[in-house]
Nucleic acid binder design. Structure first.
Lengths: 204, 204
DNA sequence: TGTTATACATACCAATCGGTATGTATGTCA
DNA sequence: TGACATACATACCGATTGGTATGTATAACA
């Protein structure tokens, strides 16, 4: 029933269970207010297992950023955008799809990356730098897509792709943040429309 | 040395000291991680005084939103904008002034309203609704300014002032959030430039 | 001048926190 | 088959948390 000696068998199933439960608890309560006891209570894993895989609570939080959030952003925002030729059309499609896939509960809890950024940036440098690494990938991925779009004649040459990429990430996070506090999918869509209008203004 | 019986003498100086200290601690640590003991340690006020003025920690947090943050947003973003005829020119000026006035430490701690929104919205309805009240005032103030701008011929008639107002608040909060995690005033300015470009695109 | 309410101050408390010490079951390998 | 490392499980610990009970000094008022 148990796996012992030499991990990596079923991709460390127990570790993944802990990581996922931590991700969910942190998503709702934030990192500092997330209780290890409550995380474990949501699984059938004990504290011994937790501290076998993670030396501290902080290390568990870091792993959530490195192994879950980085992947999420990459798969949802960066990779699909880099596969399109016209970044405006591509990003609008990604935004629409994201809007459809988000449940009301997702909206109520907001973007987990932004949550951790706003909570932990002033409190812990390890968190901040790891979150920044993910944001950096998001921004530079977007920047690359828009530079390619400029080269292929889809996007105005006079815009600064770096600034625009930052603005895009900022406005998306801002929209999600406002919709989260308003608890309103309608506001998310309304704000999303304005973001898409902005994107259209970047066309040649 | 002490004021007793019938408050309201020096505008409840002690209460204000507690409130201000709470605001500062919450700004850095967040509400849930803010410790009452540490808040009091930053003043020369005791726990007895705190619980004389505030029945619970939650009530103290609510007072920070109602009495400090609401006023901040109103004074910094709503009132100046409503005094201008051309909202685009007006808002650009407000953004530039805000950017100049912000210290590096302000950037590192981010917008206190956004901080509380992202942290507390899923956790406590009392917080969420109070923060929402402030956001609502910010959004509708901006909306009114842009509707007036449309009437006076400064702003395109075809834009939806409600959506635009939401987008403006979202992108401003998004910019501050990104700059906070990046710990970069340069990024704040860079992102602010793109917001101002967006505002320019709303002109007739 | 005595009474009372206000405005604090001090000491303490149960609950919860992250973390540790110890024990045990199981698979690997010599 | 025995030795050993891995993979947990259980019980416990000091520190910190928000909150309370109690005491006291002062001002207003009758």
């Amino acid at each position: 029933m148990q796996t012992a000696a030499t991990d990596t068998e079923e991709e460390l199933a127990t570790r993944q269970v802990i990581l996922q439960a931590a991700y969910e608890e942190i998503h709702v309560r934030g990192f500092q207010a997330a209780s290890l006891s409550k995380i474990l209570a949501n699984t059938n894993v004990t504290k011994g297992a937790l501290y076998h895989y993670f030396p501290t609570k902080l290390a568990l939080g870091y792993a959530v950023v490195d192994e879950i959030l980085a992947e999420q952003i990459q798969q949802q925002w960066v990779q699909p955008l880099l596969q399109t030729d016209d970044p405006v059309t591509g990003l609008i499609q990604i935004i629409k799809q994201a809007g459809q896939e988000l449940t009301e509960e997702d909206i109520y809890c907001g973007c987990p990356l932004n949550n951790l950024a706003q909570e932990m940036a002033p409190v812990d440098e390890g968190f901040r730098s790891r979150v920044e690494f993910v944001y950096e990938a998001w921004r530079t991925g977007t920047e690359t897509a828009f530079k390619n779009g400029q080269d292929k004649g889809f996007v105005k040459k006079e815009i600064n792709a770096t600034s625009v990429a930052t603005m895009i990430v900022a406005s998306l996070e801002g929209c999600m943040g406002l919709a989260k506090n308003a608890r309103s999918k309608k506001m998310l869509y309304q704000c999303g429309e304005s973001v898409m209008d902005y994107l259209q203004s970047l066309r040649t």
